[in-house]
């Protein structure tokens, strides 16, 4: 086999493979725009918002959490927009889920304007600060279930 034809074959294979990966990446990102939507995006989605399984991000409004066993009701806020969330999953939300924390609710947006979540995840800040003196550091290891 000529050295040249091998080179051409390898080049063609490389172009095809890299091209496919790029195509899949670009179309994938466009189709399912992102891992989560903001409250503003959810509210401007129109009818599509009610038929899709979504993940919505926001900050937990202080004082809005009402726990009921493993379930909870709370309000997510993002730039002045509010979203009422009803969480009815089987696991209690994580310990980091509390007032002002960034949270992700996974579920369906109802026509009643309430987001029915089957999962609640906390999203951590990228800023690490020491616990203030006098303030008791939280014990994450306990993973205590709110009862």
């Amino acid at each position: 086999m000529h050295k040249n034809s091998v080179g051409i074959r390898v080049a063609v294979a490389a172009v095809v493979i890299v091209g496919t990966i790029l195509y899949l990446a670009v179309t994938g990102v466009r189709a399912n725009k992102s891992y989560y939507v903001t409250i503003q995006e959810l509210q401007s989605m129109g009818n599509r918002a009610y038929t899709r399984h979504l993940r919505v991000a926001g900050n937990v409004e202080p004082g809005s959490i009402q726990r009921d066993g493993a379930h909870a009701q709370f309000v997510l806020v993002e730039q002045g927009r509010k979203l009422e969330v009803k969480y009815t999953g089987s696991d209690p939300p994580p310990d980091t889920f509390k007032d002002n924390a960034q949270a992700l609710a996974v579920g369906m947006y109802g026509r009643d304007g309430v987001f029915h979540a089957t999962q609640v995840q906390a999203k951590c800040a990228s800023k690490y600060a020491p616990a203030k003196p006098g303030e008791k550091p939280r014990q994450t290891a306990s993973m205590a279930q709110p009862r």
């Binding site: 924390a101 616990a131 303030e135 550091p137």
Partner: peptide, 14 residues
């Protein structure tokens, strides 16, 4: 290292 404010001890895994 100090204990982290929001995550507590678990942040040390960082």
């Amino acid at each position: 290292a100090p204990t982290e404010a929001t995550m507590g001890q678990i942040q040390r895994i960082f």
